[in-house]
């Protein structure tokens, strides 16, 4: 509870000192309802979590930004979901196949996003959803890989994520995946860059606190891909990692590379217990 008190205090002080109306960012018991589906945005953390409780990034946003996610029509991220629908049934590559030829409707992937990334036995490594999509494209469609964090990839991940809306994240970190998880964890807590900061400095130690005019979130991945007001497009998890690293004046790891994939796995697991809400709307 310490963290929440802190954030309400910070918000209250801002309101007092500048005479603003309350920013309505009270993180407690915030629930969002999208088209009749109720999605909790604040849950108790499971045993062993480094966080006392989990918050969707949605609770840290302004009322106006929050509202944009509460209606699928108002959510501009859905433009890209529509585009992915078209891509889904468009044959590509030397095999002349589309996603639909093997997978039927996108609904067949219900629940998948909530367990991603996961251990891929055949590949002998942890795969993100992006990895699975590119593998399918190369192996079964005879098509080129998509850019790991590009528009087409973000849109397809959004379409598949939507099929898991409201499903509780349950990323399995044990067994053969444990080594990758440890690696991701190490990256999460390692200070890098000219500002000498780790992910944890902002997103574990200071969430809810203002960073300049902004509220720091827990850096949860449940809302990804996220439509950002800033760049008016869907942003992938690793695209965001890259942005974060640039912000702390570090040289970002390669998008799609070993480090970011491990980090995505680890950060996803920190959201175990939170429902999937991607594609979300963020600032």
């Amino acid at each position: 509870m310490k963290k929440i008190t802190k954030s309400i205090l910070a918000g209250g002080m801002l309101a007092l000192s500048l005479g603003f109306a309350t920013q309505a960012n009270e993180p407690t018991d915030a629930v969002m309802t999208i088209d009749g589906v109720t999605i909790p945005t604040h849950v108790k953390a499971p045993a062993g979590s480094p966080l006392p409780e989990l918050f969707s990034g949605w609770v840290f946003r302004s009322t106006e930004t929050q509202a944009m996610q509460l209606d699928d029509f108002d959510n501009p991220g859905m433009i890209f979901v529509d585009q992915a629908w078209e891509t889904w049934s468009t044959p590509e590559g030397s095999a002349g196949k589309s996603c639909a030829d093997c997978h039927g409707e996108p609904e067949s992937f219900a629940g998948l996003r909530a367990v991603m990334p996961k251990w891929n036995e055949a590949a002998g490594e942890v795969y993100t959803l992006e990895d699975y999509i590119n593998e399918s494209r190369v192996k079964y469609m005879g098509a080129d890989k998509w850019k790991y964090s590009g528009g087409k990839m973000a849109a397809m991940v959004a379409l598949i994520s939507l099929q898991s809306r409201g499903d509780i994240i349950n990323v399995k970190t044990d067994g053969p995946a444990a080594a990758t998880w440890e690696k991701g964890k190490e990256i999460y807590y390692t200070r890098v860059g000219q500002l000498d900061m780790s992910c944890a400095n902002c997103h574990e130690d200071n969430y809810g606190v203002m960073i300049r005019a902004d509220h720091l979130s827990q850096g949860q991945l449940n809302g990804f891909p996220a439509y950002r007001l800033k760049n008016a497009k869907l942003n992938t998890a690793q695209g965001r990692f890259k942005g974060c690293m640039k912000n702390i004046r570090a040289t970002p790891y390669k998008v799609g590379g070993e480090e970011f994939r491990a980090l995505q796995f680890y950060v996803a697991s920190r959201g175990n217990g939170l429902p999937i809400e991607g594609p979300s709307v963020r600032n």
Binding site: F20, Q23, R61, S62, E64, A213, R228, K230
Partner: peptide, 11 residues
């Protein structure tokens, strides 16, 4: 909004 989170998209 009294405070817009990002100037790129202000309702």
């Amino acid at each position: 909004p009294e405070i817009a989170e990002n100037g790129n998209t202000v309702p």
